Simulated scan of single mutants.
Amino acid sequence: MSMRRAVAAATGVLLGMSALTLTASPAHAAARQDSTSDSGPVTVAHRGASGYAPENTLAAVKKADKLGFDWVENDVQRTKDGELVVMHDTTLARTTNAETLYPKRSPWNVADFTAKEIARLDAGSWFSDDYKGEKVPTLDQYLKYISKTGQNLLLEHKSPELYPGIEQQTLRELRSRGWLDRSHLSKRLIIQSFNATSVRATHTLDPHVKTGFLGNPKVSELDSYAQFTDQINPTHSAATKDYVDEVHKRKGPLGKRMQVFTWTVNDASTARSVDKAGVDGIISNFPDVVRDATHS
């Protein structure tokens, strides 16, 4: 049970509330957002709490955890030697020191480097000197970490067209870490992509996995998308009430009402707007701003 629900259940019982306060660990001092709550949309920490720590690093996941957020989003790609790593851009240039460490390797594509070479990179200094030496995590390292924190995962296949078979490889790695059991599949894992073919492939490979399509297909196309994706996840400007209502009219392949997780919402005004539109989730670099604005 999340801290938020535990506190709600103990309302009016002073002793119970005191016990909760005394036993809360420092890493979970902030009340966790209840991902099953009907009080508002789920807030997802985009690339971890990437407004406060370098994106897609374990430091960003740790920050999201300290802020009390169950859901984190990440991006997955594949190295030259076949290792899955957590990285947003298809090149290493923006968020690491690859240009300095490997000056003759332009354009520094993720797919042109081995996992060992990427492990040497500094993925934190670009953000702040406080994060100097932060590493690019492998998917395996990432899964180990969030398994310990108890956080949930919205995993994005980034540019999967560059990495044939990445869907099957990801599922294999998730399975090896226990992430394809009933508990994880029912409430702790979503796999999404901008590439509809990739989303369909994930669904075909394992129909029990909850999937999301990043984009806003025409309303006339939603029935076809409902055959292989459980979520339609548009940018916030496309998450109008009319569009959200249309998505909600349909059931996804898991037999439940389709959902809408919108992105990337970093200010209170936009958060309130998409909340009013009825979205089910809000993806944000500053998840605490969204939580405060939506009271969820």
Rank of each mutant, 00 (worst) to 15 (best):
T211V: 10
H236V: 05
I232K: 09
V260N: 03
D242H: 12
A268V: 03
K218H: 14
N266P: 04
F228P: 14
D275I: 00
F261K: 01
K210R: 14
K218N: 15
V219F: 03
F261Y: 13
M258T: 04
L254S: 13
T270Q: 12
G278R: 01
S224V: 12
V247Q: 04
V265W: 02
P287F: 11
L222P: 00
Q259L: 12
K256D: 12
S284G: 10
K276C: 00
F213P: 10
T264P: 04
G212Y: 06
K210M: 06
K241S: 15
A226Q: 10
Q259I: 00
W263M: 02
F228T: 09
L254C: 02
G255Y: 05
R250N: 14
D280H: 03
Q231R: 15
T262I: 01
D267H: 06
V274G: 05
G212I: 06
V279R: 02
R250E: 13
V274H: 03
D275V: 00
A226T: 08
V279T: 03
P287D: 12
Y243L: 07
L254V: 10
F213E: 04
K210H: 10
G252E: 13
V219Q: 11
P287H: 09
V219E: 11
K241I: 10
G255C: 04
V244E: 07
V244A: 11
S220M: 05
N233W: 01
V247Y: 03
D230A: 14
W263H: 12
I283Y: 07
N266H: 08
G252L: 13
V244C: 09
I282N: 07
D230Q: 15
F286Q: 08
D223F: 00
P253F: 10
G215R: 03
Q231T: 14
V247T: 05
G212E: 07
P234T: 03
D275E: 09
K249R: 15
T240W: 10
Q227G: 13
P287E: 06
D245E: 14
